[in-house]
Every structure is written in C-alpha cells, then in structure tokens.
C-alpha cells in the first residue's frame, strides 16, 4: 500500500518576519509569515512548518503572535520549531492551535524531554529535528550538530534518530547542514539511513533545488514528506507544480 507523500513549505522567521526572501508579487507583505502561509495553504501545502531561527528570549512573544496569526489563516497542520526548551513552551504553542512542536537542541541536551513531551501531549505531536554533518568517524558517517550546525555533539545521527523514536518522538526531521541552502539536493544517503532505521515518518529537509530532488528524497531517501523552502519562496515552482511533477513520477500526493 503506497502512502501519500506530503509537501511541506518551511517558513524561516526572525523577529516575526520571514528570513529567506519570498518572491511573490501578489502578496501585500512578502515578509509576513501568516500571509505567505495562507498563500501556500491555498496552493496545496499539505502541512506548514514555521521555524524561529533566532529564537531569542525577547523574540518568543513575537513568535507566539506570528503563530497565532498564522494558525488563524490556514487549515492544514502547523509545526513550530526553534527555541522550544520545555513543556511549558510547547503548551503555549499547542494552546494556539499548533499541531506539532519540533525540538532540536533541547532534545540533544536532555533526551528525557522527548519522553516527557510524548507522555504529556502524545507522540504524534512531537517532532525531533536533527541537524547533521558528514563525519567519517561516526558509525553511520553522519554526526549530530547543534546551534545551526556550528557545534558537533559527538552523537551518531542514525543512532540518535533511533533513540528519539524509542523515547516517543512521532516524526524525525533530519536536515543536512552540508546541503541546507545549497539547492544542490537533499543528502539522500543520510535521509535514507535514518528513514530505514526508524519506523516513524521522516521528513526530508535541507537542499531542495529542483523538482527531481523532491522525487529523490522519496524514492531513494524513503522520506514520508519533503520540506521545501527556497524552491517555493523564490517562485521557481508552485506547490501544485511540484506535486504534479511528483505524481508524474509515480508518487502518491494529494492534488
């Protein structure tokens, strides 16, 4: 039985504004995440991810405001990540109508938070984002890094993904720091290594620059979903075009 593959635009924000440029002429405010989210939603996004890439303490109020405005304008699930440190942060976001919280550094520092969050909110609502870098010293060849890829933590990325699953994570969002932002394609060996090791959904992230990259992440990388930023933000393709292309390659998508 073939599953539906999801196409998920990712909105990177800083101080409540979009960071990566968005190239839509028909929007009033191209830096407003809520406005762009609504546009993506009507264009066929299966879910949306909103990342607060700076996540400063001062920025948290801003983030909550942006999240509130975004949730009100979309009718697909929203995942929020960036700066989530504890269960209270998650509760604040869930109370606004957020579907899933994505944790990264907090989980690396204290893996127990995954277990606590899954027990409190349900596994389905806890995504663990894993940033990776190639490192031949690691058994899988990929190491976990934090702080935007600057700090390696000495954990094997595949072993960590499995540990996250065992602790109760509902999905894994692996991003290759080697590939992110390059538009040269996802790190397929890394995605596949993680997707093959866990039985929860894996959302491929980081590096999509062509529609074939999306297809590769699913067919070769075994990803359940693809996270896309630049490809859509710069108006290179619409979500519908991406999905139609994937469908033409035999991938089941909701059109």
């Amino acid at each position: 039985m073939v599953d539906y593959v999801k196409v998920i635009p990712c909105l990177d924000t800083k101080d409540g504004r979009l960071v990566k440029g968005v190239n839509f002429v028909n929007l009033r405010d191209i830096a407003d995440p809520a406005e762009v989210a609504e546009k993506y939603c009507s264009d066929g996004a299966d879910e949306l991810v909103l990342l607060d890439i700076t996540a400063t303490v001062e920025g948290r109020t801003t983030l909550l405001d942006v999240v509130r405005r975004t949730v009100e304008r979309i009718n697909v699930p929203l995942t929020v990540g960036g700066g989530i440190r504890n269960l209270d942060n998650m509760r604040d976001l869930f109370d606004l109508g957020v579907a899933k919280c994505s944790i990264n550094t907090a989980a690396v520092k204290n893996p127990q938070i995954i277990k606590d969050a899954a027990a409190e909110f349900g596994s389905e609502r806890i995504a663990v984002a894993i940033d990776t870098r190639k490192n031949s010293q690691m058994p899988s060849g990929f190491e976990v890094v934090v702080e935007g890829g600057r700090t390696p933590v000495g954990k094997d990325a595949v072993a960590w993904a499995k540990q996250c699953e065992d602790l109760g994570a509902g999905s894994i969002l692996p991003t290759s720091m080697d590939a992110d932002g390059t538009q040269a394609g996802y790190d397929i060996p890394m995605i596949r290594a993680i997707a093959s090791a866990v039985s929860i959904p894996v959302i491929a992230s980081g590096g999509a620059g062509t529609l074939d990259h999306l297809v590769q992440a699913v067919v070769e990388g075994k990803a359940s979903a693809v996270l896309v930023a630049s490809l859509f933000h710069y108006g290179k393709y619409t979500i519908r075009e991406a999905k139609e292309y994937m469908a033409s390659k035999g991938i089941k998508v909701k059109l």
Partner: peptide
C-alpha cells in the same frame, strides 16, 4: 511491512 510508518500521519 517495516517501511510502513506509524503513526499514520497525513492525507488519505
């Protein structure tokens, strides 16, 4: 099938 992901999370 070990490739079948649980939770069932998405469109159907």
């Amino acid at each position: 099938d070990p490739e079948c992901k649980i939770p069932h999370m998405g469109w159907n």
